[in-house]
């Protein structure tokens, strides 16, 4: 695979990852642009022959974390969760909204592994390299994060889904 083709594939992955991180297509593209600008500036640090994808994801990850910290200093108000891009039925959208909302409640260290693995584009080891953590740490965060996500969704879901079912029953 040529470098151009490889890079194009990775940029597609970055856009997908950025969308889940930001929940906003415009902000996602801004994040990818910022990532590419930084990658251009740091291109001399890339070791040819090494894997390009973790290098790019690490830049995006760090850029996103920096931006989150900056945003936190600007406002402590929790941002409204934008509606996800419509793809499926109302129930799926509600579930997705719940999962995305639950993800927001997780610590960043657990949130990132869940999203990276959900992309289904890399191994555990490669995803760990993207986040610059040892594989054992990554696995532990992924597992704990998944269980925490499940508990949050179950807690939230019980109430909201009951309301939804009641509304459907009223209609």
């Amino acid at each position: 695979m040529s470098l151009k083709t490889e890079l194009h594939t990775h940029v597609g992955s970055l856009r997908r990852y950025a969308l889940v991180l930001t929940r906003d297509p415009v902000a996602a593209d801004d994040l990818v642009q910022e990532t590419l600008l930084k990658a251009i500036a740091k291109s001399d640090t890339f070791q040819p022959g090494s894997n390009l994808r973790p290098w790019l994801f690490r830049i995006l990850h760090n850029t996103h974390v920096s931006e989150l910290r900056r945003a936190k200093t600007r406002t402590d108000a929790a941002p409204d969760l934008p509606d996800p891009v419509a793809r499926d039925c109302q129930h799926t959208q509600l579930e997705l909204k719940q999962v995305l909302g639950a993800l927001d409640q997780l610590p960043e260290a657990q949130r990132m592994p869940i999203i990276l693995i959900a992309l289904r584009e890399m191994s555990y080891a490669e995803a760990a390299r993207c986040l610059d953590v040892p594989l054992g740490t990554f696995m532990s965060r992924l597992g704990r994060g998944r269980e925490a996500l499940r508990r949050i969704v179950q807690g939230v879901g019980a109430g909201k889904l009951t309301i939804l079912k009641r509304k459907e029953g009223d209609a």
Partner: peptide, 27 residues
């Protein structure tokens, strides 16, 4: 949950090409 997140991430592929990203990618 993984499927939901995967499908949501994949919706980025439905977005039109971003010309600025394409230019940076070439650079």
């Amino acid at each position: 949950f993984g499927n939901l997140l995967h499908d949501y991430a994949a919706s980025a592929d439905d977005r039109p090409e971003n010309l600025q990203i394409a230019a940076l990618e070439r650079q």
